[in-house]
Design a protein around this nucleic acid. Sequence first.
DNA 1: CTTGAAAGGAGATATAA
DNA 2: TTATATCTCCTTTCAAG
Lengths: 152, 152
Amino acid sequence: MNFDTIDIELLALLQEDCKKTTKEYALKLGLSVTAVYERIKRLEKNGVIQKYVALVNKKEIEKGFTALCHVKLTQHTKKYVSNFERDIIKLTEISECLHLSGDYDYMLKINVKDIEAYREFIVSKLTAINHIGSTQSSFVIAEVKHTTAISI
Amino acid sequence: MNFDTIDIELLALLQEDCKKTTKEYALKLGLSVTAVYERIKRLEKNGVIQKYVALVNKKEIEKGFTALCHVKLTQHTKKYVSNFERDIIKLTEISECLHLSGDYDYMLKINVKDIEAYREFIVSKLTAINHIGSTQSSFVIAEVKHTTAISI
DNA sequence: CTTGAAAGGAGATATAA
DNA sequence: TTATATCTCCTTTCAAG
């Protein structure tokens, strides 16, 4: 799909706040309501906009402690890899699992209440998964920048 | 703020799709429209819900290549740290910058078109920032799991 | 692309139970 | 606390320029 500068501006607005009225977007973009409406529908239809979600403040729901955990597998056969990935997806504490190039196989992002909860997670949930060779954790001291918006 | 099980269900629904009508949430939760409406407003007012955003498909906007980059600073004086963070925030390719415990000072997540664009970013933008001691990049081979929803 | 119109629906508040 | 009613505004579609 091709984007003109208005599409790009519109995507930036929607990534910042998707609950404004079409009228408000139209005003900011200098277009009519209908035009903006059609553009949004087009972006949705083409899969450029995947979904609309509420973002929740982690601290308010007692998930203010974030850790990154690098994981190496013992083997890299297809079976081991897919079993590991299947199990990881089920763990609700994990918001992100990236398969990486380089020294480590996977990087997990884990959201829990505090460091005790993290220890409990590692001991009773993560290391219960088969074929994990080693893990190495880092703790997030500060989120300097964290945005779901991707600028074109 | 305290949550009952309905709040928790509601937050899960809103984190999955925030564009449904209050009526639909009410139906799923077995409550009246007014009750759900009041709960949502309460969650917003208390800062539990931070914002509502559109999530964009990275591949569709030519930002399908994701890299993680560990950064060490040469020094850790307050001035160096805050200058570094100020500069990082300005770079639109960076969607995330975490200050970490452990071997590395920072982890950056970078979204660009492809590996050539990544090289260009590193050479001309990232290393242009002062007081960076070393960087080490890993490339994302697959996003096994990636969710903005945090389950309570 | 724009404007205007029209139907139906949802948001928001007030009121009753 | 819930449910109901009401009014206003928004969404969505259409037609015509």
